[in-house]
């Protein structure tokens, strides 16, 4: 059952991210729903599922992007794994703390991706961080926080935690 839910999630993420979200973009920047989904799965289902779903999302979304496959695998899979680990250490998770955490994860993965543009000079790199990576990280934080709030209001959310 879980596998089917994850499959539907991954399949629906592609049209959402590539077809619908461009209409909702602000200054041509849209949130990375793949990263948000990987983090939420890692948080609720643990490191292993976060990693596997993150890798699947990274792979499928990289088929619909001009970007590198390894970067997409590493950022989404790593975010799912990290969310699983960090989620356990936080006793009281709120939508604000999740939003801030997601902002940081998105900022780090975005900066890592920007550093991968080898033909960019310093000013171009800074432009990318300032006008793409940072706004996207804010966007990701807001969307992730809002999704967590909706999920925790609607369902009895079970989160894994180290005792």
């Amino acid at each position: 059952m879980k596998f089917v839910i994850y499959l539907i999630l991954v399949l629906l993420l592609v049209p959402l991210q590539t077809t619908l979200l461009p209409h909702l973009s602000v200054w041509n920047v849209k949130p990375d729903l793949g990263l948000v989904a990987a983090v939420l799965v890692g948080l609720f289902a643990g490191e292993l599922e976060g990693l596997l779903v993150g890798l699947a999302i990274g792979w499928i979304l990289s088929l619909f992007s001009a970007g590198e496959l390894w970067l997409s695998l590493l950022t989404n899979g790593g975010a799912g794994l990290l969310a699983g680990f960090l989620g356990r250490q936080v006793s009281q998770m709120t939508s604000v703390s999740l939003g801030l955490g997601l902002l940081l994860v998105s900022l780090v993965s975005g900066a890592f991706a920007a550093l991968n543009f080898q033909h960019f000079d310093g000013s171009q790199m800074w432009w990318m961080i300032e006008s793409i990576v940072f706004p996207q990280a804010c966007f990701d934080g807001i969307v992730g926080g809002a999704l967590y709030w909706i999920l925790s209001q609607r369902f009895d959310v079970i989160r894994l935690r180290t005792e």
Binding site: P15, P22, V29, A66, G67, S72, I132
Partner: peptide, 14 residues
């Protein structure tokens, strides 16, 4: 054209 690049880092269409 059925979509735009999945990331914000590239200007691409699908």
């Amino acid at each position: 054209v059925i979509g735009r690049d999945a990331t914000n880092r590239y200007r691409a269409i699908i």
